[in-house]
Design a protein around this nucleic acid. Structure first.
Lengths: 219, 219, 219, 219
DNA sequence: CTCTAAACGAGACGGTACGTCACGTCTTCGG
DNA sequence: CCGAAGACGTGACGTACCGTCTCGTTTAGAG
């Protein structure tokens, strides 16, 4: 168990532990150096050439960390990439604060949409795809993306509830699925463009369904 | 161009041509045999072992069609699989007719959800993932899945509009994204279960946003 | 069977088939090119850096033949090296013809001893060692070395018998073992030097045991 | 130099120092425990799974001695194995005493042949092979095997000389090479079986060459 | 009923990356 | 200060599947 998981694998951080049974082990200074070097190299490679460029060999070469060691820290290539990309993405999407629930959620969806439409959005899609056939990587993916998204939306939704704009009875996970599912669907299948306008339309419609009548945006 | 596309590649059929510039070439009897043999073999392999099992070598071996010939008919492995799986899926999802727009759309979403949750749903996810890095395959994917889904929803939505239950001003593509995006999101990331109950909750919320006040389901 | 053996694996050549069950398959022009390229590259690498240098990766790189293809032609690295080195060695050791059995056999042993003492002798030792843990390679080794040696000694021994110098009742394999075993023993273990003088002493003693009294060399 | 050699490396014991420049360092009680634990573990591993099983990691794990410590006592894996196997072999081959030189030497060769043919013979071959590319290990190999063999044969040969059966002018090393070289040759290359009968034939022929006419066995 | 041009089966091939193994070194910390 | 524990770099391994290619062999359909 611990031998196949890195010092801060999915779920190690805190309450967001996704119950994948992944537990960290005590980290020495050596491990930290390795850990950071790998993630830094991976971020660079992902940025430069997307997921296909983030070969384990390439990561090893650039980071100066051997393949064998990489595989001691992470269960698969997808896991490394998920962790690295998670760190990349976190910075790109700060929480908005427009003063209203509708405004905040709309803004957040638009930002995420824009992110998906950017070059890094391509990487996101590749990573999502890679995790479909890699359960180990998927655990990391869930921890480093979805958990992050979830925390953000939970925060915003809670604000809305506190302000009386939203119905406290709605499960946050449903909010997430309805707000972001459509974006991800488009991004992955490429069947339609991801523009801000599209995003605003989607979020407006979704919020009409999610919010109580008084708070709902109109068509 | 045409030399890399099969006799009935995406867009070859009719008005659903997705403008990917894919055009078929005249088909002889030989081609038809080959075509069918490949698809049949691929369907079997997909059913038995999912996308990973549908290796081009495996398809060639089982169908008796050589790899070179397969690549004369389809641009990539993903394309073959998309076409084959499209045929598999079509049968599994007939149009519902409950008498109401809300009922029809709900039923359709629930059926699709159940399909995604079934073993074939796994294949669907794999296929979606495979097309992320394969533009050629993606064209087939869009033609053989999304187009099919789109036609079905368009039909249902039109019924709703005709019955005065739905607002004719809403773009069908948005309906599709909002109804199915969340399902696909869950299926691909595996972050939550796909149960009928979840599906009903999602569709109810989505329809509250999509339908005019008079037709909307309540929380 | 055939799929793992190259066009002229051990035993394919003729009557010397060592009964390892290795059978060649019909060779196309592609295979021939590959085959030759690999052997040429391997010979160069063996000559330059010995067996350790004849990495499969290195062979692939230098020959322009991919690793996968190499493994389609030979069962292991040792097998490739054995075949290649066999060709190298064959040229280095022509049959002597001094006019007498004692002279011919002595000369042959001295030449082999000198070969073992040369840089290529090091490669020979490495190859022998490599085959200890590689049954597949060992089959090639036996075919391409021992068979070659055996043919040579058989020829010389037969001459001796024909001239009435040697006893027809002695099994050639015993002759080989007694004449060359000591040399190989020394070369492998490095416990003593391999000089011409040592070789002559050994062969003289051995022949005293092998030949009838009349033909025997004296101490 | 000494830092890489154990407390009783090759040549440390006595006059049989093979001039490889290997010198022991003073041994404390800790070292002794470590030393013995390692050798015991190695013997077990060699017996159970041959040389391939006697991984340094495996030895460390089983003996409770760390890898770093092992490398303080021996220069390489092969060296540890050589020392350990030397102790295993010593017990298996006591000196014969049949009353005649011919009898003793024959018996000794037959016993060694039987040993080579046994499971431990496989290990012997692997060890010999391993030392080809490991000069440091080779030094140990020579000390713990060849020296042992040499002492035994020297003893037997001396008896023969004392009894007037053997010629005092023959170098013992030549005797060794001629008697055992053929066996080792067969064992390593696997080109022929190692049976008692073969061994007797070989030794008879060899002795015909080695012994004065009066003592020689006949064909 | 040929005869030619295309379609085809078979499968070799180069390429790229995978994940694994064991060696021997080096670091950390406990007794 | 020695030694246990074990992380680490290194270098090679053998495998998998992709998509391309070359070879002969069918097989149509035109003349």
């Amino acid at each position: 168990m611990r031998s196949t998981e890195g010092p801060d694998g999915p779920g190690s951080a805190d309450d967001t532990d996704t119950a994948d049974g992944i537990v960290p082990h005590p980290t020495g200074p050596r491990s930290q150096r390795v850990h950071q070097a790998v993630l830094t190299a991976t971020k660079e490679l992902l940025t430069e050439g997307g997921y296909p460029a983030a070969t384990v060999d390439a990561i090893a070469a650039r980071s100066g960390v051997s393949k064998a060691t990489i595989y001691k820290h992470w269960p698969s290539r997808a896991a490394v990439a998920a962790k690295a990309f998670g760190e990349l993405m976190a910075r790109a999407l700060p929480l908005p604060d427009t003063g209203t629930a509708v405004g905040d959620l709309t803004e957040q969806v638009v930002r995420v949409s824009a992110f998906y439409a950017s070059p890094l959005g391509e990487v996101f899609a590749q990573l999502t795809a890679a995790c479909v056939d890699d359960p180990a990587g998927a655990a990391y993916f869930r921890e480093y993306f979805l958990a992050g998204r979830r925390r953000a939306v939970t925060e915003l939704w809670q604000r809305a509830v506190d302000r009386g704009e939203a119905d406290a009875g709605i499960v946050v996970d449903d909010v997430i699925d309805i707000l972001f599912g459509p974006l991800i669907f488009r991004r992955l299948t490429g069947h339609r463009e991801l523009t801000d306008e599209h995003a605003r339309t989607l979020v407006a419609t979704a919020l009409r369904g999610l919010l109580p009548d008084a708070s709902r945006p109109q068509h």
